[in-house]
């Protein structure tokens, strides 16, 4: 029974992995990765790792993939031809991967580890339960646990800093022009924004008047100031 389940899950995991690499649309790649992750969770269950399997489904297939889908939808996953990149890597990449696969298989076949060809050690009843994992996290592996929380916080702050709107990178001037040109024209005088009441920014109509005056003054004074 476990052998049948293993082969079903393994075939789905490998199909999902191949789908991630081969599908042209990034959106379908993300969906293939979801299939891959869920079948990997089934493999974890077969290995008596209940908590890891649950975390895989909830955190990975749930939260992280939603993040991916959001970004793909934001960017607009355009179809890209396979291997449209540099020519050398297009050929060398699969060859390299095949070489690594063969080498790993040789390493595993020639391994002196006797446990590899067994079904694993005898287990105590709480193996892989949240209780077991939690006890390990709070006793033997307390430092990695705390470091992981620190890392998550740094990553969250870093992502916000990276993805925020920045002066100079954006079309902020365009927005200002848009407001001056369209929004502000249909607005009566002195009903503007806080920026106008505090004197940071003048009303558009006043500014236009001042500009016209300045121009007028400039045009009249130029002959005197010149030559």
């Amino acid at each position: 029974m476990s052998a049948v389940l293993f082969f079903i899950a393994a075939i789905f995991a490998l199909t999902g992995a191949i789908g991630v690499v081969m599908l042209r649309n990034p959106f379908y790649s993300v969906l293939a990765l979801v299939v891959h992750l869920i079948s990997l969770a089934a493999l974890f269950l077969l290995l008596e790792a209940q908590f890891v399997a649950a975390a895989q489904v909830v955190v990975y297939a749930g939260a992280v993939m939603v993040l991916y889908v959001f970004v793909v939808a934001y960017i607009g996953g355009a179809d890209q031809p396979l291997g449209s990149g540099a020519g050398a890597l297009k050929v060398l990449g699969p060859i390299f991967a095949l070489a690594v696969a063969i080498e790993l298989c040789i390493a595993m076949l020639g391994s002196a580890l006797e446990g590899i060809s067994s079904k694993g050690a005898h287990l105590h009843t709480t193996f892989g339960t949240p209780r077991d994992i939690g006890r390990l996290f709070l006793t033997s592996y307390l430092l990695p646990f705390e470091l992981a929380s620190l890392l998550l916080m740094v990553a969250a702050v870093g992502a916000v800093v990276l993805a925020r709107r920045r002066r100079g990178l954006e079309a902020e001037e365009d927005e200002y022009e848009y407001e001056r040109g369209i929004v502000a024209q249909h607005r009566p005088l002195y009903t503007g924004t806080n920026a106008e009441t505090t004197g940071v920014r003048r009303h558009v109509a006043l500014e236009a008047e001042a500009e016209a005056e300045r121009e007028h003054a400039g045009s009249t004074s130029r002959p005197e100031g010149g030559w």
């Binding site: 990034p26 493999l43 960017i75 291997g83 990149g85 890597l89 990449g93 699969p94 690594v100």
Partner: peptide, 20 residues
């Protein structure tokens, strides 16, 4: 299975041009 998945992933990193 783990080795095969790893190699598929490595091939994808090397061949696909899209950072996503």
């Amino acid at each position: 299975v783990s080795a095969l998945i790893f190699c598929i992933g490595a091939a994808g990193v090397l061949t696909r041009p899209n950072p996503l």
